[in-house]
């Protein structure tokens, strides 16, 4: 259950950050609705944010391993 709580906390933080970052990148001038180009931008931004998360996560764990070897 602790495990699940952490997974949920992690997903929630990811959703919060993605919303904030992709709103900033994609909604330049807020209109009366999300137009299709804004929707496409948000979907793409979301996919890229998760790609970046995976890359950063791998880069970090690689670095941790290298540091451990050096010690």
């Amino acid at each position: 259950q602790v495990k699940q709580q952490i997974a949920v906390a992690n997903a929630q933080e990811l959703l919060t950050k993605m919303t904030e970052k992709c709103f900033k990148k994609c909604i330049i001038k807020p209109g009366t609705s999300l137009d299709s180009s804004e929707q496409k931008c948000v979907a793409m931004c979301m996919d890229r944010y998760m790609d970046a998360w995976n890359l950063v996560s791998k880069a970090y764990s690689n670095r941790l391993q290298r540091e451990r070897h050096r010690m």
Partner: peptide, 21 residues
């Protein structure tokens, strides 16, 4: 107008991202 739309579009983006996730 910008402030009103900003709140609504931010919620739209939040719902879009949560549902897609």
């Amino acid at each position: 107008t910008c402030l009103n739309n900003c709140v609504d579009r931010f919620i739209d983006v939040s719902l879009l991202i949560t549902n897609r996730f």
